[in-house]
Write a protein that binds this DNA or RNA. Structure first.
Lengths: 237, 237
DNA sequence: AGGTAACTTGCAGCAACTGCACTTTAGAGT
DNA sequence: ACTCTAAAGTGCAGTTGCTGCAAGTTACCT
C-alpha cells in the first residue's frame, strides 16, 4: 500500500494534511460508535448520538460511513495484501490448507489498527452476532480474488503433469470450493477467538484492561489447522 | 410440530381456518414482493407498494414479516427436519461429509413450497447478493444444532475405542469445525446452482417458463461431494 | 492574497419500522 | 342462532436510518 507516497509538491512536516484529518476523524467516530454501543447497547445508540459525541454533523457522518453499522464494524473494506498474495502463490504446494487459512485470516485485522478499538470491536461482535455476520459478509467480497490466488497456486503445483483445459476448469472448481470451505473455517476461528476473549475479559476484573494472554492469531491458527488435519482424515477412513 | 394436530373441538372440513388464511396471505405477499423486485428492482420496491399489491395494510405487513427483506427471502425460519436429523445420527459413520452436506442443504428449501416462488426467489438471489447473504446468515443460526448432531454422530462411530472427557471435547471441536466448513461448502453449492439457473434462464426465451433441466439438488450435491473428496486428498499429499 | 476544489453542514424529505388505540372478525360457549 | 372474547387487521403518529441539494467553510495551490 505504501502508506504515504505524498504526491504533493511540497511535502514538509505539515501540521494537519487533509488525509490525516480524515483518518483522524474516522477513527475518532469509530471509537465513539464502538464504545457507545458497548456501554448503552446497540438499540440505544442513534447516529445522532455518535455524531454529537464525535463532534460532527449527521450529514458528515454519512459522508464518512455508508451506514451506521459501517462505523461500528469499521469503515475500511477488507483487502488482500499484495505481498502476502505473491508469497502465497510462490510458496511450495504442500501446505495448502494452512496457507489459505493464513491468507484469509489476514484480511480481517488490518495492519496499524488501534489496539483498544480492535478488542472493543471484538467484544461488540461477541454481543451482537449480526454485526459479526456483516463483517464476515464483507470478507466474502474478496472471495473471487482469493479463489484466483488458490487457483494459481494449484496450477503451479500441478503444472508438471497436467495442462489440459479440462484440468484447468477442474482446478478452478477446486479453488472455489476450497476457498468457501476455508472461509467457513475462518468463521469458526473467529467465533472461537471471540469466545476466548470474552472469557478472559469476564474472568479479569473490570480494572484489568491491560493485555491478558490473548491466544494470538498464529496460535489459534495452528490449533485450527491441526484440528482440521485430524478431522479431515476421518471421512475418507 | 406435527403440522395439523387440529386441537379444535370441531375439526370438520371448515372452509377457511385461521391458520390457513394466515399461510395464504403469507405466500401471497411473498409472491408480490418477489415478483415486484424482479420487475422493478429492489430499490424501486417499497413496502407500501407490496402492501397495496397484496391488499393488506403496511401495519399488517409488519405483523407478518419482521422486515421488508424477510418478505422477499421468505418468512419461514430455516429449521432441521426431526426425522432427517434422527436418520443422520443413526447412519453408519463412513460417509460423514456427504451426509453433513445433505443435512445442511435440506434446511434451505422447505418441503411444500410454491415452485414458481422458489425459482423466482432464486433469481432474486442471483441479482441481489446481499439478500442471499442474509439467507445464508439465517442458515447459520442453526449451526449449534447441526454441530450437536455432528458431535453425536462422531461420538457414535468413535464410541468403541475412546470415551474420555478429553476425547469428547476434542470431538466437539471437530464437530464445530466441520459444521462451519461444510456451511462454507453449502454456500459454494448455492452460488454454483444459482449461476447455473441464471444461465438456463438467460438462454431460454422469456416465454419459456416451463421447467428446464435444473441440475437437481441431489445431482449438484453428488458433484460437490466428489470434488470435495478429490480436493481434500491434496493438502495431506 | 486570491481562487478553486474539496470538505462540511443544515434542511427537507423518503422509507423502514414500532407502539398504541381502535375496529373487525373468527371461533368457542350457550 | 346469539353472544362474547381474544386474536387479527388497521390507522396514525412518531422515531430512526439515510439521501439529495444548496449553501457555507476550509485547505491547498499559484
Amino acid at each position: 500500500m505504501a502508506d504515504t507516497p505524498t504526491p504533493r509538491t511540497t511535502a514538509p512536516a505539515r501540521s494537519q494534511t487533509r488525509e490525516d484529518k480524515h483518518r483522524e476523524t474516522t477513527v475518532r467516530v469509530e471509537r465513539s460508535a464502538v464504545s457507545l454501543v458497548l456501554e448503552r447497547g446497540f438499540d440505544n445508540v442513534t447516529v445522532d448520538l455518535i455524531c454529537s459525541q464525535s463532534g460532527i454533523s449527521q450529514r458528515t457522518f454519512f459522508n464518512y460511513f455508508k451506514t451506521k453499522n459501517a462505523a461500528i464494524i469499521g469503515a475500511e473494506a477488507p483487502t488482500i495484501d499484495e505481498n502476502r498474495a505473491r508469497a502465497f502463490i510462490a510458496a511450495t504446494g504442500d501446505d495448502l490448507l494452512p496457507d489459505v487459512l493464513t491468507l484469509l485470516s489476514e484480511i480481517g485485522p488490518r495492519a496499524g489498527i488501534d489496539e483498544q478499538l480492535f478488542t472493543d470491536r471484538l467484544r461488540v461482535f461477541g454481543l451482537y452476532p449480526e454485526l459479526m455476520h456483516e463483517q464476515m459478509e464483507r470478507m466474502t467480497r474478496v472471495t473471487a480474488e482469493i479463489t484466483e490466488l488458490v487457483y494459481l497456486r494449484l496450477s503451479r503445483s500441478a503444472a508438471a503433469h497436467s495442462a489440459g483445459d479440462a484440468d484447468a476448469a477442474f482446478r478452478h472448481g477446486q479453488a472455489e470450493l476450497l476457498t468457501h470451505a476455508m472461509l467457513g473455517v475462518v468463521r469458526y476461528m473467529a467465533l472461537q477467538w471471540i469466545q476466548g476473549n470474552d472469557a478472559t475479559v469476564g474472568a479479569g476484573a473490570d480494572h484489568d484492561k491491560s493485555r491478558v494472554d490473548t491466544p494470538t492469531l498464529t496460535e489459534s491458527l495452528h490449533r485450527t489447522v491441526e484440528l482440521l488435519r485430524r478431522t479431515l482424515s476421518i471421512p475418507g477412513r
